[in-house]
Amino acid sequence: MSQTIPEADREHYMRLLEDAAEPEAVDFAQKLLARGVPAQEVLLQLVAASQAEVGRRWAENRWSVAQEHAATHLNEQVVAAVATTIRPAQPSRGRIAVACVDGEWHSLPARLFAEVLRLHGWEVRFLGASVPGPHLVSYLHSYDPLALAVSCSLPTRLAAAKRTIEAAQEAGVAVLAGGAGFGENGRWARRLGADRVATDAVQAAQELAAWLPATPRSSPHPLLVGDDEDVMVSKHKQSLVDSGMRLLGERFPALARYSGHQRQATLEDLGHIADFLSASLLVDDAEMFTSFIGWLCIILESRRVPISTVDVVLEAYQRELYDYPRALRHLSAGRRQL
């Protein structure tokens, strides 16, 4: 996509995010609109692009999680302001529901997609972050949208995404899946049975007219892999984390001197490793696990945590999961990655 918003403007906006200068950021976006910049470009080149930068700054430990959250909140306010400034006339196309899967709190990508759909004439209902399955199903029955666009930003929510996709299809509603959580080109969405995959908001908004109305996949999903290893890993997450902490304590005596906060962060990282293992087993793709391990190493390096700790954790998990052949394969692939 060609950049119609000059670099200088985008940098200025980033500074406003950094300062959490809400009124100025909203004014700035509205000034761009007044200058004739299309709303879609404000949403994608300003908001979406800056949000990606926010994520990078957090990953590099330049921003705290609270700063990241404040900037995200500000971006949400800007999206709301753009949406009320540029309100398309009566929707000319059918109704589409947009929702984040249960446990998914990153609602900004879904919100941006909802607004892009609206700009393309669709009647959009944005159901928000972390929509519990029963609420979603009850909404689908009551309002009967042509399709449900389901957003998932983290692969660890794929099990919830799978349940959402199946529930919507069971209710007769076709599912469009999108978001970074579904992997490159949405490949995991296809594996989980989504009727269609959106990799680009604008392109998806344009293609929807030709696709809808659509009948969802009606045949029950074939089990991806029938061994339930993903379920077992997530069920025994706690004992995995415990075993990881034990082995870490043996190999790194410094762990005993960790502050409560550091200990908590370590526990969370161990939990994430277990969650990603479960997700990669669900879609049967070891690459998901290895790329997570790669990403985790970058995060840990920026926070000066030795990478060898990750290897110890994977080793502990291997010992614990000796009975699960696929989990062992994914863990070995993860260790090779280090």
Partner: peptide, 12 residues
């Protein structure tokens, strides 16, 4: 003042 400066909290 309208600008709010966040208190930076290191992660680790």
């Amino acid at each position: 003042h309208k600008r709010r400066h966040l208190v930076g909290v290191p992660n680790q």
